[in-house]
Design a protein around this nucleic acid. Structure first.
Lengths: 215, 215
DNA sequence: AATTAGTGTGAGTAATCACTCATTTTCTAG
DNA sequence: CTAGAAAATGAGTGATTACTCACACTAATT
């Protein structure tokens, strides 16, 4: 099983997809990620998938529908459970420090995030230009997840582990740093030498001592 | 004088440009910023500029040359001096705390940054896809500026104002947060209600207490 | 008035675009 | 094994793409 198919399993109910449909999705992700949505032609995607161009339009009415069908599952099936699962852990185990929680979350999901990176890249690239995606992103990610994150943050604030900053600001700043690292590391300068473990630890330390209340 | 022309003055030697050339640049910036480079057609840019399509290609051999001629000056004439100027201030005034330095830098340049935002947006959007731009960005911005930033950081570290983290990590994390705020504020969710002054202060506090050594 | 050089034009080009549809191939149920 | 449905095809569609070029216009110099 290729790495792409592993990623597909995470994102789609691939039982219902034919072989050619999977190949179309894989080819589309690869092409969109490399050249951007607007610069990718359906003929190129079809060629890369080893499929007739008409086959694409049998399953997706338009090129944009193909884009949305790739990015939308990332938001509904990946991001949301990612946070929910680890939040349940927080509720169960009740991490003593935010630091531990952050480290566990990032370490747990890093491989998965890296594997999803082509789709994440497409999402970040196209959200500014596709109001459809932006609306979905706002509804699914921002409102849904931020609400949950904020509850946890308030909990830690009441324990005196986090400073008295508006929870939505703390959430924004924390997520900015995690995504910022991934963006810098894998999209902006993937060819530079990176000491991944060190950088992650630095990022956690940075976040922590930014929002962690000093005794 | 329109706001666009004010921006142009910052970016170009507009004495040498004819009226139509300026209009082409303004229209190109607006179109690229709204729809992205690949989705913008030269015919649309010409129409918006009130110019024949052939006029664009009299001054720019290709569409990509038009893009580069817009983004390149931003990197050479805007970003570099932006940092250099404030670094001279640091050397002159010798801010006691990093916090003061950050606040001065952000507050000083925010209006300018906002005015430049369409071009900055184009730059951020196209760097992943244009190796030409990425190389320029690496050479002009990353190497040049990071070197200077790191010297300042080392200086503050020796004073005991910053923690013992590799300077390039501190630089990366600090810049990530400033750009991350601007990206979230003006590109991702420009239509949300923002308390700008508060968010800036939060960002500074976050950066500071992240890298600021505790007594 | 003539020359020259630079600016601007817009119809025209081949190539490519997203998308359609009549037809064929593959799959599935009885 | 067969029939009907679903999947896949690829030649064909008009529209649009980046770009060209022969020509007109303008302004400054001789």
């Amino acid at each position: 099983m290729t790495e792409e198919e592993l990623m597909l399993e995470q994102l789609f109910d691939d039982d219902k997809l034919t072989d050619k449909q999977k190949k179309i999705i894989v080819a589309a992700i690869e092409t969109f990620s490399e050249k951007g949505y607007a610069a990718s032609s359906t003929s190129e995607i079809a060629k890369k998938a080893g499929v007739a161009e008409g086959t694409i339009f049998r399953h997706y009415k338009t090129k944009k529908e193909l884009l949305v069908s790739i990015v939308a599952p990332l938001m509904t099936k990946f991001i949301a459970p990612l946070v929910v699962k680890d939040f349940n852990k927080v509720l169960d185990r009740n991490y003593e420090t935010v630091e531990d929680f952050l480290r566990a979350t990032i370490e747990n999901r890093r491989d998965l995030l890296v594997r999803m990176l082509p789709v994440v890249k497409i999402m970040l690239q196209e959200i500014p230009f596709q109001p459809e995606l932006r609306e979905q992103f706002l509804e699914l990610v921002v409102k849904n997840i931020f609400n949950r994150v904020e509850k946890v943050i308030v909990g830690y604030q009441e324990k005196g582990l986090l400073i008295d900053m508006p929870p939505e600001s703390i959430a924004r700043l924390t997520i900015t740093n995690i995504l910022g690292f991934l963006f810098t590391r894998y999209i902006l300068f993937p060819h530079l030498d990176w000491e991944d473990e060190d950088e992650i630890e630095h990022t956690i330390q940075f976040i922590m001592h930014g929002v962690g209340k000093k005794e």
